[in-house]
Simulated assay, not measured.
Amino acid sequence: MIYGIGTDICDIRRIRNSLEHHGERFAAKVLSEGEMKMYRARSQRWPERGIRFVATRFSAKEAFSKAVGLGMRMPMTWRHCEIGKLPSGQPTIILHGELKTWFEAKGLNAHITVTDEVDYAASFCVVETQA
């Protein structure tokens, strides 16, 4: 049964401006430790890929926060929600800390998709109950 649905669209130009203004501090606020490593690796090879990486993660976490009905308030935090990839390339949500505990206690399961195009990154999330 569906628990919640969330979607988000993010202007990549806004993320670019935040990174230019705040530097890596902005990325560190939004990304988990694992995501920061990926961001740095992508940015070294091609800075635009790093910017798009932050934008897609920002968008995915916003969509997830809407689907679980918490918005950006505890236990939902940017860094407790990580967007990973399965071996197939499919995006997946990896939770940490209090958010993981809360999510598992409710018996929830999440599905996420992300995309980006020229100026925008977009995400869609479906959270369902296991019952």
Rank of each mutant, 00 (worst) to 15 (best):
39 Y>C: 09
82 E>N: 03
77 T>G: 02
61 K>E: 14
64 F>P: 02
104 E>F: 07
109 N>A: 10
92 T>E: 13
32 S>D: 05
65 S>I: 04
41 A>Y: 06
82 E>H: 09
95 L>W: 13
56 T>H: 02
69 G>L: 03
39 Y>N: 12
70 L>I: 00
72 M>N: 05
34 G>Y: 04
98 E>A: 13
24 E>H: 01
62 E>Q: 12
54 V>R: 03
116 D>H: 09
82 E>P: 13
43 S>R: 06
116 D>Q: 03
94 I>R: 05
107 G>N: 08
61 K>H: 14
34 G>E: 04
55 A>V: 12
32 S>H: 13
28 A>T: 09
58 F>S: 10
65 S>T: 06
98 E>I: 06
123 S>W: 13
53 F>Q: 03
63 A>Q: 04
101 T>H: 14
76 M>R: 00
89 G>P: 15
61 K>T: 15
92 T>L: 11
107 G>P: 04
31 L>Y: 00
125 C>L: 04
79 R>K: 14
75 P>W: 01
35 E>F: 00
24 E>Q: 10
61 K>A: 15
34 G>M: 09
107 G>W: 15
81 C>W: 03
85 K>C: 12
59 S>V: 06
112 I>L: 05
76 M>I: 02
33 E>H: 10
91 P>M: 07
129 T>A: 08
91 P>L: 04
46 W>E: 15
97 G>K: 12
27 A>P: 14
87 P>M: 02
35 E>G: 14
58 F>W: 09
28 A>G: 08
54 V>F: 01
52 R>S: 09
50 G>F: 00
70 L>Y: 11
53 F>M: 04
77 T>F: 03
79 R>A: 00
116 D>Y: 02
34 G>H: 10
26 F>A: 15
85 K>L: 07
116 D>P: 14
53 F>A: 02
101 T>P: 01
40 R>F: 11
54 V>I: 14
65 S>D: 05
74 M>A: 08
128 E>W: 09
72 M>A: 01
51 I>Q: 07
93 I>L: 15
60 A>V: 02
91 P>A: 05
78 W>Q: 08
122 A>M: 08
44 Q>K: 15
75 P>E: 05
106 K>M: 13
105 A>H: 08
83 I>F: 11
42 R>W: 14
128 E>G: 11
55 A>Q: 11
65 S>M: 10
128 E>M: 15
69 G>W: 01
69 G>V: 05
81 C>G: 03
123 S>H: 11
68 V>T: 06
109 N>M: 11
99 L>A: 11
82 E>G: 07
116 D>E: 13
111 H>G: 07
67 A>H: 01
118 V>I: 09
105 A>W: 12
40 R>S: 13
33 E>F: 08
85 K>F: 08
90 Q>M: 12
88 S>P: 04
46 W>V: 12
93 I>F: 11
84 G>R: 00
84 G>E: 05
120 Y>Q: 06
86 L>W: 01
104 E>A: 12
43 S>G: 14
86 L>N: 07
69 G>N: 02
63 A>G: 06
86 L>R: 06
37 K>R: 10
119 D>E: 10
106 K>F: 11
87 P>V: 03
58 F>N: 08
118 V>A: 09
111 H>R: 10
92 T>A: 02
117 E>I: 13
31 L>S: 07
120 Y>L: 14
80 H>E: 15
100 K>I: 08
38 M>V: 11
36 M>K: 09
